[in-house]
């Protein structure tokens, strides 16, 4: 058989072997066998110099063509096999996607503080500042400066915790408003969240609770500004489209005093058995009013030049309504079964 004939034979054999290889390992064996150092084709190429000169060119060409064809077959077969193998491996690597992931902790912020943050954000957006003050407060700031002088009947309703003489746990956040007014000149726009204390403990009262109060003093402020501001706040926290209504209210340091109700965000008054509003259709939201001129005078503001409004709400109770919490006492027990729901 001629050398070129043998080359053709080896090539066919090699191409069959490549095509028949079932793995990249078998393919590697085929590569070594047909193109490796000791392969027949390699030997033939090495011995070309010993051939008669007239045959050398033809044998050289045919052997090169054979090598290239085998290489190309190897390359494409390698690619195909690698793809198949990768696919098989990926199939092998499949996980049970229904298993839970690595646990990343979920935050738990206290429900009262969630409400406070929301309310504060609303007022900050309007341009209010946030004021804070001491929880152990003087008699003067907690009462007298707020139109509740010693002996005033309203004092007895505050169920005050007394510390040292003339020192109480603040019964409301209102003293912070006084402190704020004393520190500067109008305009004043502040919101005051904080802990407050009253000596009262029953299913609906805890000796510590929270208030958010607010105060605006400026030229030309009216009850309409109060209504618009607080209605927008209530809608921000409880939902757009809710209605508000004002009722007469009595608070020592405002005149006129009002209470604001919010239409029930669950039933809008359509469900007589509604758990949230008890069928009333309205939820008591907050107390407010135009700042009493005597309070403005007490802090050195001219009540003829400035008017103002003040408001107060209970974020604990708002959280009860918003999240459907049945019992105020749960708020301050540090019970993880409670806290982890928020």
């Amino acid at each position: 058989m001629s050398v070129t004939g043998r080359i053709e034979e080896v090539k066919s054999e090699a191409l069959r072997a490549v095509a028949g290889a079932g793995s990249t390992a078998e393919l590697e064996n085929a590569r070594v066998k047909y193109l490796g150092r000791s392969a027949e084709l390699t030997d033939i190429k090495k011995s070309i110099g010993k051939l008669p000169p007239e045959d050398r060119k033809e044998v050289g060409r045919v052997s090169n063509v054979a090598s290239r064809e085998i290489e190309s077959a190897l390359a494409s077969r390698t690619k195909a096999l690698a793809a198949a193998e990768r696919e098989a491996r990926l199939r092998e690597e499949a996980v049970d996607v229904t298993l839970p992931g690595v646990p990343y902790p979920k935050g738990h912020l206290h429900p009262t503080l969630r409400v406070i943050d929301e309310v504060v954000d609303f007022f900050v957006g309007l341009g209010y500042r946030v004021a804070e003050g001491p929880e152990a407060e003087t008699d003067y700031y907690n009462f007298t400066a707020l139109n509740i002088p010693p002996g005033h009947p309203a004092r007895s309703e505050h169920d005050t915790f007394f510390l040292d003489e003339g020192l109480v746990l603040r019964t409301h956040t209102s003293p912070v408003q006084i402190r704020t007014m004393l520190e500067g000149e109008p305009p004043v726009y502040v919101v005051v969240p904080g802990r407050t204390y009253r000596r009262d403990s029953d299913p609906t009262h805890t000796p510590m609770f929270h208030q958010i109060e607010g105060l605006a003093v400026d030229r030309g402020l009216t009850l309409a500004h109060l209504k618009g501001t607080l209605a927008a706040m209530a809608r921000h926290v409880f939902g757009e489209g809710l209605k508000v209504r004002l009722r007469p209210g009595y608070f020592q340091f405002v005149e006129p005093g009002v209470e604001m109700d919010l239409s029930c965000f669950v039933c809008d008054g359509t469900d007589p058995n509604c758990k949230v509003c008890k069928g009333a259709g309205w939820l008591e939201m907050l107390g407010a009013g135009m700042v009493d001129p005597a309070v403005l005078e007490e802090v050195g503001y001219d009540p003829e030049e400035y008017t103002g409004f003040a408001f107060g709400m209970g974020p604990d109770r708002m959280a009860m309504v918003k999240y459907g919490i049945p019992d105020l006492r749960m708020f301050f027990e540090g019970d993880l079964r409670f806290l982890k729901q928020f």
Binding site: V120, F123, V124, G125, L126, G127, Y128, R129, V130, P187, Y189, A216, D218, G220, L221, T222, L223, A224, H225, K227, G228, T229, A231, A232, V244, R245, L246, R247, P248, P256, V258
Partner: peptide
């Protein structure tokens, strides 16, 4: 106010002449 009816008070917003914000 109360005898005229507080429902007659409109809703309005004051223009707050200060930058607000948290400290």
């Amino acid at each position: 106010g109360r005898l005229m009816g507080l429902d007659r008070v409109p809703e309005d917003l004051p223009g707050v002449p200060q930058p607000g914000g948290l400290t």
